[in-house]
Amino acid sequence: MRVLLSIKPVHVANILSGIKIFEFRRRIFARRDINTVLIYSTKPVGRFVAEFDIADIIEDDPERLWLSTENGSGITKGYFDAYFAGREKAYALRIGELRIFSEPIVPADVIEEFTPPQSYMYVAGRGEDIRRQQQLPLL
């Protein structure tokens, strides 16, 4: 099963370049059969750009999570602290195999009445389906 995550372009760039190997979340999806993330790069990009396998999901209090992920965070401690302010739990998805699409995909071309999720959206099998529909190879 896949989940679609809306991620800001600056963070997407860091994921695609390998600087960011953890994607942080304030809350995690309820389903435990999620193994792949489809990346929606938010506006001004507004496209599906890649997908990655989830190598691990780390759950901890924010301070301990930072200590275990800071080297692959791709963000500053200040940004991390502001993002998790007031939270007792924090989550990090360890990025496994990354598959970058050769051409970014317009969401409306493959998902009818697409609206970017605030947090996440389940998309069973969509990553491969999207590539097939667009006939796009991976980079």
Results as ranks from 00 to 15, higher is better:
Leu5Ile: 11
Arg131Lys: 15
Arg87Trp: 03
Tyr120Leu: 07
Asp33Ile: 08
Arg27Asp: 15
Glu63Ala: 13
Thr115Phe: 13
Leu16Phe: 11
Ser17Gly: 06
Gly74Ile: 09
Lys89Asp: 08
Gln134Asn: 10
Leu5Asp: 05
Asp56Tyr: 05
Arg31Gln: 13
Leu65Gly: 00
Lys89Pro: 00
Phe29Gln: 15
Ser73Ile: 04
Phe52Gln: 00
Arg132Ala: 12
Glu97Ile: 11
Ser6Pro: 09
Pro117Leu: 09
Asp81Asn: 15
Ile130Arg: 01
Thr69Met: 04
Glu113Lys: 15
Tyr83Trp: 01
Ala108Ile: 07
Met1Pro: 07
Lys8His: 14
Pro116Asp: 07
Lys20His: 13
Arg25Gln: 08
Ile7Ser: 03
Ile19Tyr: 00
Phe48Ser: 05
Gln135Asp: 12
Phe84Ala: 02
Ile75Arg: 06
Leu4Cys: 10
Gly127Ile: 02
Tyr40Ser: 12
Arg2Ala: 12
Asp109Gln: 10
Phe84Ile: 05
Asp33Cys: 14
Asn71Asp: 02
Gln134Leu: 07
Glu103Thr: 11
Leu67Pro: 01
Ala85His: 14
Gly127Ser: 14
Tyr120Ser: 01
Leu139Pro: 01
Ile95Met: 09
Ala50His: 06
Leu136Lys: 11
Pro116Met: 07
Val12Met: 09
Ser73Met: 05
Ile7Cys: 06
Val37Asp: 02
Thr115Tyr: 11
Val12Asn: 06
Ser119Val: 14
Lys77Cys: 03
Ala108Ser: 14
Leu67Met: 09
Thr115Asp: 06
Gln118Pro: 03
Asp109Trp: 09
Val49Met: 06
Ala90Glu: 05
Glu23Lys: 09
Glu103Val: 11
Gln134Phe: 06
Asp129Phe: 12
Ile100Val: 15
Leu139Asn: 13
Glu59Trp: 02
Val12His: 10
Tyr83Met: 11
Ser73Leu: 01
Gln135Ser: 14
Ile54Trp: 08
Ile58Lys: 08
Tyr40Arg: 05
Gly78Lys: 11
Leu5Thr: 02
Phe52Ser: 03
Val45Ile: 15
Arg2Glu: 09
Ile100His: 05
Gly86Pro: 10
Arg26Ser: 03
Ala92Leu: 07
Glu88Phe: 08
Asp109His: 12
Ile111His: 07
Gly74Cys: 09
Arg47Lys: 15
Ile111Trp: 11
Asp33Asn: 15
Arg25Ala: 09
Phe101Thr: 01
Phe24Trp: 05
Ser6Arg: 07
Pro104Gly: 08
Tyr91Phe: 15
Glu88His: 15
Glu112Pro: 04
Val49Tyr: 04
Ile21Glu: 10
Asp109Ile: 03
Ser73Asn: 03
Gly72Pro: 00
Arg25Leu: 06
Leu93Gly: 02
Arg26Phe: 04
Val123Met: 11
Asp33Gly: 10
